[in-house]
Amino acid sequence: VKVFRALYTFEPRTPDELYFEEGDIIYITDMSDTNWWKGTSKGRTGLIPSNYVAEQ
């Protein structure tokens, strides 16, 4: 598990995607895809765009 911080707010387009706000901490559990990672924030899990976060 790696810890990342959201650089921007992300509004999901599908139920599989995770909503998060700029500054949120996201725990990444799967980075197997280059563009979409699986992450958890505020008790919810979903896909996030990798270019919206920076490693802490």
Rank of each mutant, 00 (worst) to 15 (best):
Y52L: 11
R44Y: 06
A6Q: 01
E21I: 07
R44K: 13
M31D: 09
R44N: 09
Y8Q: 12
I28R: 00
S50I: 06
N51I: 09
G43S: 05
L47T: 06
K2G: 09
R13Y: 09
Y8N: 06
K2R: 15
T40M: 13
D30L: 04
G39K: 01
Y19G: 15
W37Q: 00
D24W: 14
F20P: 00
D16K: 11
I25N: 03
I28T: 01
W36L: 05
L7M: 10
W36S: 02
W37M: 03
A6I: 02
Y27G: 03
V1R: 12
D16G: 11
D33I: 05
T40R: 10
K38A: 08
L47W: 14
L18P: 01
Y27E: 09
D33W: 03
W37L: 05
A6C: 03
W36T: 04
V53E: 03
E21P: 00
G43Q: 05
L18F: 04
K42P: 01
L47M: 13
E55I: 14
S32F: 07
E11I: 15
W37Y: 13
V3F: 10
T34P: 15
P15L: 10
F10K: 04
T9E: 05
A6K: 00
E22C: 12
T14K: 12
F20K: 00
D16F: 13
D24L: 03
T14S: 14
D33R: 06
K2H: 11
F4E: 01
T34W: 08
P12K: 03
E11G: 04
T29G: 04
I26C: 02
P49L: 07
E22K: 15
D30Y: 04
K42Q: 12
T14C: 15
Y27K: 05
Y19I: 03
T40S: 13
Y8A: 12
V3T: 11
P12Q: 04
W36E: 02
K38W: 15
Q56K: 09
T29I: 14
Y8F: 12
G23W: 05
F20R: 01
T40D: 06
F10Y: 15
I25H: 05
T45D: 07
L7F: 03
G23N: 07
P12S: 07
E22F: 09
K2F: 12
E21H: 08
D33N: 11
N35W: 13
D30P: 02
F4H: 06
G23V: 01
K42F: 07
T45P: 05
I28S: 00
F20Q: 00
E22A: 15
I25Q: 05
R5I: 15
G23L: 03
D30N: 06
T45M: 10
